[in-house]
Amino acid sequence: MPFLKHKEGKEPVRIFFQDYGKGKPVILIHGWPLSHQAWEGQIRTLVEEGFRVIAYDRRGFGRSSQPWGDYDYSALAQDLSQLILHLDLKDVTLVGFSMGGGEVVRYFTDYGADRVAKAALIASIIPLVAQKKDNPDGVPQKDLDGILATLKTNRIGFLKDFHKNFYNYDENTDKLSQANLDYDFSIASHASPIATIKAAEAWAGTDFRPELKNVTVPTLIVHGDADNIVPYKTSAEQAAKGIADNTYELIKGAPHGLNLTHRDRLNELLVGFLKK
């Protein structure tokens, strides 16, 4: 199995990745609390459309190693940078789903755009999850604190029901089944407990608004207007205002997990953007 091993941070890590196809490279960065397997509905399509697709597991998740610390976004972006250097990728497109949007933006902040041709933010947390006086549509801090408290006391119980809201399950039973929820629960429950908590602290507490100007490549922004996890007004709508060269697509009725429920539409948008 392919692993990237590096010692650039405080602790050595092994990052598991899959590398399929030939053509222009595309890196898929998964959301919280899943793994690269969340991209199953996109990988095959992108490879068949002529792209080289690299999907990896964030540290602490999937088959990657589970260090105790270093889950801030600069540490996570460092793993992404090391993967790009390891594979000597050029003209790569970075695609971040949900939490993964943070790695995309922080990569530009810490490493620039020399090796990057395009970017995509899919149901992304960018630029800010938390509600603030100048971000009134964000998630109230008491709700974020409640999530973190529950992860520390009843992680498994929280994860058991999390993906119902992730997919707006009751409204989308024609698009996914209980088996999909069980699959996600299996992936999420086997992630590192400390990584699950610390990664949540990162996506809940990082304000990327000052960093949007660093995204200097053409960027696709896709979000669902029925996203109950990351409301589009605090994320995609603001990202579209802060990233100079962007294409913004709001999918009607799509939940947070639109990569599954609205797979065909998302794939159409991705392929069109990548081939433009």
Rank of each mutant, 00 (worst) to 15 (best):
W39Y: 04
Q141V: 15
F97P: 02
I251Y: 05
D114G: 08
F97N: 11
T173P: 09
E11P: 04
P140G: 11
E201M: 13
I125A: 13
A254P: 03
G146H: 01
A120R: 10
T216H: 09
P210T: 00
G100Q: 12
K233L: 08
K164C: 05
T173N: 09
D72I: 01
S235H: 07
K90L: 09
N172I: 04
E11L: 07
I126E: 09
R58F: 02
A130P: 00
L89P: 14
G60Y: 01
S192G: 11
G146S: 04
L34C: 06
H86K: 14
T45I: 11
S98P: 06
A240V: 10
G21Y: 09
E103K: 13
N154E: 15
L28D: 03
V92N: 11
K213G: 15
G69L: 13
R14Q: 12
T234W: 06
G100L: 09
S186L: 12
S81T: 14
P231C: 10
L121V: 03
E201F: 04
P33E: 04
S192C: 09
T219N: 06
L80F: 01
R44S: 12
S124I: 04
R59K: 10
E48S: 12
A123H: 12
E49N: 14
K241T: 04
D227C: 04
K10T: 11
Y56M: 05
V105D: 07
V116Y: 04
P231M: 07
K118D: 14
R106T: 15
H30T: 00
D19Q: 08
S124C: 05
E8N: 09
R209W: 03
N259A: 07
F97W: 12
A204T: 05
V13T: 06
K276Q: 11
A200I: 01
V139F: 05
K152R: 15
A119D: 02
Y232T: 02
I251A: 07
L212I: 08
A195D: 00
L128S: 03
V222C: 10
A239F: 00
F158L: 15
E211H: 08
V129C: 01
G9E: 12
E201P: 07
A77M: 07
F166A: 02
K5Y: 15
V139K: 07
L258F: 10
G272P: 14
E49F: 13
T109G: 08
Y71C: 05
R155I: 10
A204G: 06
P136K: 01
N267S: 04
Q178T: 15
E249G: 09
H6M: 07
N214H: 13
N228I: 14
L181D: 06
R155M: 10
Q66K: 15
E268Q: 14
E171N: 09
Y169G: 06
G100A: 11
G23V: 13
G96V: 00
R265L: 15
R58D: 02
D182W: 00
R63G: 03
D114I: 07
A123P: 08
G242H: 01
A119N: 00
H190R: 13
I125W: 02
D110A: 14
K175F: 01
V105G: 09
F3G: 01
I156T: 12
D137N: 02
D57K: 02
A130L: 05
V53A: 11
